[in-house]
Amino acid sequence: MPFTQLKPIVKTILSNTSETVDQRLTNVCELLQSSIGYYDWVGFYFANEAKKTLHLKAFAGEETDHTVIPFGKGICGQVAVSNENFVVPDVKAQDNYIACSMYVKAEIVVPLFKDGKNIGQIDIDSHTANPFSVEDERFLEWVNEEVATIL
Rank of each mutant, 00 (worst) to 15 (best):
P2D: 13
F3K: 02
Q5P: 05
K7A: 11
P8V: 02
I9T: 15
V10T: 03
K11E: 13
I13N: 03
I13E: 04
L14H: 09
S15H: 07
E19T: 09
D22H: 10
R24T: 07
C29Q: 10
L31C: 10
S34L: 03
S34W: 00
Y38G: 05
Y39A: 03
Y39D: 07
D40A: 02
D40K: 06
F44K: 02
E49N: 05
L54G: 09
L56Q: 12
F59T: 10
F59E: 08
E63T: 14
D65K: 15
D65Y: 10
T67H: 11
V68T: 15
I69F: 01
I69S: 02
P70L: 12
K73D: 15
Q78K: 07
N83L: 01
F86A: 01
V87K: 10
K92N: 15
Q94S: 08
C100L: 08
S101M: 00
M102S: 15
Y103V: 12
V104F: 11
K105T: 00
K105W: 01
V109L: 02
V110R: 01
V110D: 02
F113E: 05
F113W: 03
D115Y: 12
N118Q: 09
I119L: 11
Q121M: 09
I122V: 15
I124A: 02
I124F: 03
H127R: 11
A129D: 07
A129W: 02
A129E: 12
V134E: 14
E135Y: 02
D136I: 01
R138P: 00
E141K: 11
N144R: 09
N144A: 06
N144F: 06
E145W: 00
T149M: 04
T149D: 04
I150E: 12
